[in-house]
Every structure is written in structure tokens, then in C-alpha cells.
Amino acid sequence: MSTALSLCGRNLVGFLSIACFNLADPQILLGFLSVASIDFLKGGAVLLIEMDKYKKTREIGYGGFGNVYQGCNRVTNENVTLKELWFPDEKEGVPSVVIKEISLLKEMEHSNIVRLLEVVSAVNENSVYLVYEDMECDLQKFMNDCPKIAKDPDFIKRFLQQILCGLAYYHSHNILHQDLKPQNMWIDRFDYILKLADFGWARAFGGSFKKIGYLDVTHWYKAPELLRCQQFSTPVDVWSVGCIFAEMVTRRPLFAEFSEVHQLLKIFSILGTPTWPEGTTSHLFANCYSKDLAAAVPGLVTLEPAGIDLLSKMLCINPSGRITAHDALKHAYFDNIEFEV
């Protein structure tokens, strides 16, 4: 007991100078201080939360928030994806947006959403790493590497259904993705489970994820209202899914232009240019007619009519007329597959 007393002696004095104790019973006092004394014995070692547990193997991408690495768990040798998240203003402590987003991700659970394993802080405490399941094989890579499987209409249907399931789950909580693209969808090569990644990143941290070795294709999947910087909501994600759906069928991006302006023109050239009443700005896309998609995009001939119908509902230029993820799952296109989630 005397050792413990001498060890925390300095603190004792300090504490006493502030709080004035009745020293009648030293046992009580000692009990009280032991709470802290354990920590004192450990010293600074408690401060470091091991990033040591993971090893960065290579950098695979970057975004407005930090870099993305492939890594592995040193103990289990399990592959993981590490996303670094910088804190822009260290005087504010851990940014509130980081607390809001991560605490939300922790409560979300769905088989078509990439799982956040844990959050570790960097040694210098100016950033945290989000540790996700390994996301090595994305949809883009899968389409390139396994064209035969990826082309199969049943696989396309199953993948689309899984994308929509994950999306509907998040939309039911009013969370937008805003950065859906084939690179952001991970596929497990063993059981062909598709998982969406990067929820909230584009929205919360203002930087979409760019994968090294890929073109920056973010705007290929942007909905017209996003390209026009209008008010937007959950329909923007459905638009992106529509683009990805068409890409899975035709094997090439539906709208792939080099700038956002050209992108918009391309969309209008395929789907028809909307007409809007003169002098109004709020209902830009209200009066648009749509062309026959199958005729406008030759690659879509292989798609069954129900698929064409669903696709054209997803690619409705007017966001309020666009089908929701939830309704899309009930579409006749999915009638002849088993619902497996």
C-alpha cells in the first residue's frame, strides 16, 4: 500500500490542494485515488491506440478525405481496406461530421453494404482509419475479368437486385450515397454477393473516392439534377444505378463524356431534351418526353422488355417521376428470380 501511496503521492498533494478532504479514514481516500493510480502506472502507453494491428500493403485510392489503402491484419492475416480520414481543424477536436457519420455507420447492418469492422486512430491523432472488409474485387474489375459471368442476364438481374436492396435500406434511413459507380461496388467472387461501399463519403466529406489506375468517372453516373446543381435527394442514387444497369448489359458506360456539360448534353441526346416553361427555373425537368431507350441505345436489344421498362423508369430525367429503390425492387423484372437477401 505504501508503494501505491508514494507513486501517486504527487497527485495526492495536488488533489488535496483542490478538494479538501476529511482524512479520518485513509482507506477511503486510497480507494478513491486508485481509480486514477492505475492509469498513472501505465503512463503514456495508454495513449496509443494501435494502428500497429494493421499493415498497409499498398495505396489503392484517394479522396477528399484522405488515402485509401489495402492492408492486412497482422494477427489474422485477413485482408482489409483502410480508409484514412484526416481531421481538417485539429483545434476543434474530432470533427462533428466524423462523429455523426461513423456513429451512424456503426448502427447500420445489411448484407449488401460493406461492413465497417472498426475504427482505429492514427498514432499522431490527426486522423482515423476506418477498417472495412476487403474490397479487392469491384464490379468494374469483375466485368473486365469475368465477362462471361458478368454478361449472363441472370447475374445482371441478381446484381441489380442486390444493389437496389442495399440502396433501399439506406434510403429508408434517408441516407444518400451520391457516389455510386462500379468501382464502389464490391463483389465476393465465391458467392457473388455484391456490397455497396462508401456510403456517406461523398456527401459528408466532400470528396468522392477515386481509385488509382482508373479514370475519374464520377460524373458519368451523375443525375441531371446533380449536374445542374439543383436541389436533389434520394433519386440521384437511383439514376446512378440505372446507368450501371445499362453498363452491365451493354458492357460500356451509358453516358461517358469528358466534362459535366457534355455529359448533360449526351443525356439529353439519348433521352430527349426536356422542354420547360419560359422564365421558370424551378421545374427545369418537368416537361420532358422520353425516347424509346431500346432504339436509342443499340446495345440494349439483349435486355428483356421488363428490363427496358425498369431502366427507363430509373432514367427518368425528372427526379420526382423517377422510380424509388424500394419500388424498383417490386418491378416485374425481378418476378422470375427468388428473393434472396
Binding site: 495508454v46 495513449l47 491506440i49 481531421f87 485539429e90 483545434k91 476543434e92 477536436g93 474530432v94 462523429i99 461513423i102 456513429s103 451512424l104 456503426k106 448502427e107 472498426e118 475504427v119 482505429v120 486512430s121 491523432e125 490527426n126 482515423v128
Partner: peptide, 20 residues
């Protein structure tokens, strides 16, 4: 701010970021 950052991180880690 270093002290605050460090303490906040410890709290967040200990509660596994389940702050809601």
C-alpha cells in the same frame, strides 16, 4: 487542443463509436 483530441478519441474508441 491536443489534450482534448486525445481524450475525445479515447472516449470514442472505448465506446466503439456507438454514440447514437
Amino acid at each position: 487542443y491536443q489534450v482534448i483530441m486525445s481524450t475525445e478519441l479515447k472516449i470514442l474508441q472505448a465506446l466503439e463509436w456507438r454514440m447514437r
